[in-house]
């Protein structure tokens, strides 16, 4: 369970999170929506302890992580698998080396075993052929797939965190990434997806959080989201009326 207890955070004079309180279970599928600069990504960074809130507590499985140092946070971070915006692949490493990064860092597997495992994971996300390419040689969609593969190879996480996984991708690639995210969650593992694309949020999530200026002003399910009278959310949802693939027939409604 992830709990935010009156969390506030500011970048200088810019108050990104303001007295935020919420709870998210590890098995939940949550989408965090909102405009640019409204604090969506900051929520993920606070969960991972990458930034410390200015006020309030963040509890992961009941433990306050705001008082922990980098060493103490390592154990917390292993409960999550994070995919940053644009993938954040290591530029100087090949796709294989990126995916094998944690295996080399934390296991004593032989090169043959690492090679086999990397191939398995890459074929799972459909980019096995790109194994020996450098990140700069990948398309946007492949980039995200490799980033997903790398996060799978890392640990056995309780929950996945995705920061704008489909931003900058064409609708087909975005759709494929959404399917992949759903596939990876088949065993009941939850995820938090930060996005500003309502179309993708509706494909992926069961619970929706709307952030505005660091405050949650909507927290509810699909029906509540679609029927809300809030003008800001209505404006967001209006994206659905512009002929994109709306809910997607193959996705859970």
């Amino acid at each position: 369970m992830i709990e935010f207890d009156h969390v506030s955070f500011a970048y200088g004079a810019n108050h990104v999170l303001q007295d935020l309180s919420l709870s998210i279970g590890f098995g939940e599928r949550v989408a965090v929506l909102g405009g640019s600069g409204d604090g969506k990504t900051t929520i993920l960074k606070v969960i991972l302890g990458l930034i410390k809130p200015d006020a309030g507590r963040v509890l992961i499985d009941g433990e306050d992580i705001t008082t922990r140092d980098e060493e103490g946070l390592r154990e917390i971070r292993m409960k999550f698998s994070m995919v940053f915006q644009e993938g954040a692949l290591f530029d100087s490493l090949t796709v294989k080396e990126n995916v094998a990064f944690c295996l080399r860092e934390y296991t004593h597997l032989s090169e043959e075993d690492i090679d086999r495992k990397v191939r398995d994971i890459l074929s799972m996300v459909g980019v096995e052929a790109a194994m020996h390419l450098m990140p700069e040689e990948l398309s946007g969609g492949m980039h995200r797939r490799v980033a997903l593969a790398r996060s799978l190879a890392a640990f056995d996480p309780k929950m996945f965190l995705y920061d704008e996984p489909t931003t900058g991708l064409d609708p087909i690639n975005a759709d494929n990434i959404c399917r992949l995210i759903l596939d990876l969650a088949h065993n009941g593992k939850g995820y938090i997806v930060v996005t500003h694309k309502v179309v993708d949020a509706l494909k992926l999530a069961e619970r929706f959080l709307f952030l505005k200026s660091g405050v949650i002003f909507f927290d509810g399910g699909r029906e509540e989201l679609m029927t809300t009278a809030d003008p800001d959310i209505r404006r967001f949802i209006s994206e659905l009326n512009y002929g994109t693939d709306t809910h997607g027939e193959d996705f859970p409604s």
């Binding site: 390592r74 954040a88 692949l89």
Partner: peptide, 18 residues
């Protein structure tokens, strides 16, 4: 600098690497 801006440094921290 580009590793910081591209979240690669954060990725290292998430992976437990100092």
């Amino acid at each position: 600098g580009s590793m910081v801006l591209g979240h690669q440094v954060d990725t290292l921290r998430v992976f437990g690497v100092d």
